[in-house]
Simulated scan of single mutants.
Amino acid sequence: MSTVGTNTAGTGTGTGTVDLTVESPRGRLYWTVADCLNVVRRELTHYRRQPSYIAWQLGFPIISVLLYGYVFGGAMKPPGGENGGNYRDFLMPGMFVMTMAFGLMNTATTVVNDATKGVIDRFRSMPMAPSAVVAGRGVTDLVVACAELTILAATAVVMGWRSDAGIAAALGAFGLLVLLRFSLIWIGVFLGLLIPNPEAAGGLYAVVFPFTMISSIFVPTASMPGWLGAVAAWNPISSTGTAARELFGYEMPGGGSGWIEQHAVLMAVVWPLALTAVFLPLAVRRFQRLSR
């Protein structure tokens, strides 16, 4: 890690020199980014040295896609679309969203493990920017999320799924999925800094699982009882799932049953930005509080 408090590279007194001391704004930014990249390198090195962890984190989404697509696919008949209600075309965007949502637990568990093993204490004892530690965790999880989406999309294509709305729209859908994962990272970091031990982190499944199930990931909200459908429609991951289906070319009859579903693309941007605005400062503040 960079020694932010002692580095004096560049004094700004000579011609062509750049002031990279920690006292200067440019220096603080430079060393914060450097610390962040060092944290990312550390986290990605763990994946290289622990292939079983890679197999679990990247293999579980594939198994889920195959399970839901083939086991339940023949019995489920969602409405609408040029595909005549093909469940796999309805399901795949939802599975992409579910993978991004379950990433919250991976983030929280990793942070808890680092805290219990003393890694967080070591970071706190070093002259590092607290925001760099949190940001490094976020960048690492985004890299892993992109790898997961790539593998899932390849699996879906092998299963016969296709995007019917063009490359630009498909890239927009994947962008919204990454944006959702980005916002959930900060919730995971914040919770990971609050949870006392890895055993307690397992309790997050009791929260995240209903959160993903009460949504439009697996079935349309119109198929639910009225009150439950309203709750599911206003679930942030439902907005991303509905927006992804729209951008991938799956057409729901009537364009959705309410305002939130009719403006799914807009809300798929608003929800993650709102979550990030709330939980990113909370995560950094929590880390700073632990550093005192």
Rank of each mutant, 00 (worst) to 15 (best):
S2I: 14
T11N: 09
G12F: 00
G14W: 01
G14D: 12
T15S: 09
G16R: 09
T17R: 07
L20R: 09
L20F: 07
V22D: 09
S24R: 10
L29T: 12
L29S: 14
Y30R: 11
C36V: 06
N38H: 13
V39N: 00
V40T: 07
V40S: 06
R41F: 03
R42D: 11
R42N: 12
R42W: 07
E43K: 13
L44G: 07
Y47T: 11
Q50G: 02
S52N: 06
S52E: 08
S52I: 13
Y53N: 13
Y53I: 15
I54V: 15
A55I: 11
P61K: 03
V65K: 05
V65Q: 15
L66Y: 12
F72Q: 06
G73H: 08
A75V: 10
A75G: 00
M76S: 01
K77A: 12
K77T: 10
P78D: 05
G80T: 05
N83W: 03
G84C: 04
G94V: 01
F96L: 15
V97A: 14
M98F: 09
T99H: 10
A101M: 11
F102L: 15
F102D: 10
G103I: 13
G103Q: 13
T107F: 03
T110Q: 07
V112N: 10
N113F: 13
A115N: 06
G118E: 01
V119G: 00
I120H: 04
R122M: 10
M128Y: 07
M128N: 06
A129D: 14
A129M: 02
V134H: 01
V134T: 03
A135N: 02
A135H: 05
R137D: 05
V139Q: 06
T140V: 02
D141K: 00
E148N: 14
L149A: 12
L149C: 08
T150A: 15
I151G: 05
T155R: 00
V157L: 06
G160D: 03
A168T: 15
L171R: 01
G172A: 14
F174S: 02
F174R: 02
L177E: 15
V178L: 12
L179W: 11
L179R: 04
S183D: 01
I185K: 03
W186V: 09
W186Q: 09
W186T: 07
G188W: 03
L194C: 12
P198K: 14
P198H: 10
P198V: 12
E199G: 13
E199D: 13
A200W: 10
A200E: 08
A201Q: 11
V208R: 00
F209T: 15
F209E: 03
M213Q: 08
S216M: 05
I217M: 08
I217H: 06
F218E: 01
F218T: 01
V219E: 02
S223E: 10
S223A: 14
M224P: 03
V231N: 05
A232N: 02
P236G: 09
S238I: 02
S239G: 07
T240C: 11
T242D: 10
A244H: 01
E246L: 13
F248M: 14
P253I: 06
G255T: 04
G256L: 04
S257Y: 07
S257C: 03
A264T: 01
V265G: 03
V265C: 02
A268D: 04
A268P: 01
A274H: 00
A274G: 11
L275E: 05
A283F: 09
A283Y: 08
R286Q: 12
F287W: 05
R289P: 00
R292C: 02
R292F: 04
